[in-house]
Simulated assay, not measured.
Amino acid sequence: MKFNFQILPKSPKWRKTAGFFIAVIIGMGLFIAQEAKITSYLSDDPQACVNCHVMTPVYNSWMHSSHREWANCNDCHLPQDNFVKKYYFKAKDGLYHASVFTARAEPDVIQTKEASKEVVQQNCIRCHVQQVTQVKYDGWLEGHQESRTGRECWSCHTSVPHGTVRGLTTVKYNVAPLPTDKEEAVIPEWLAEEVKN
Rank of each mutant, 00 (worst) to 15 (best):
T149P: 00
Y59A: 05
Y137N: 13
E193M: 00
L95C: 07
V171K: 13
K86H: 08
V186W: 00
S155V: 08
I25Q: 10
F20S: 14
L141F: 04
H64V: 04
Q131N: 15
C156V: 11
W70M: 01
K16F: 09
G94I: 02
W190E: 08
S61R: 12
V195A: 06
R68A: 11
K136H: 06
V119W: 02
T17Y: 13
D44Q: 08
R104H: 12
K172Y: 10
R148T: 12
K90G: 11
V109H: 11
D93W: 01
P179R: 01
A71F: 07
Q6W: 04
E184F: 01
W14V: 15
E194M: 06
Y137Q: 10
V132A: 14
W140K: 15
T170G: 11
Y96F: 03
W154V: 10
H162T: 06
P188F: 01
K16I: 09
D108A: 03
L95D: 11
K136C: 03
A23F: 02
Q80E: 09
N72Y: 02
Q131Y: 11
V50P: 14
N60C: 02
S61E: 10
T149L: 08
L141T: 11
N72I: 03
H157I: 03
G143C: 06
A33F: 04
A91G: 12
A33W: 07
K117Q: 09
Y137T: 02
E35D: 13
I7M: 09
A176V: 00
L30I: 15
D44Y: 07
P179I: 01
K13W: 13
I187W: 03
M55N: 12
A192G: 02
N72A: 09
I187H: 05
F83W: 15
I38K: 08
F3D: 04
F20P: 11
G19C: 10
N123R: 08
P107C: 13
P107K: 15
S159W: 04
C124V: 11
T112H: 11
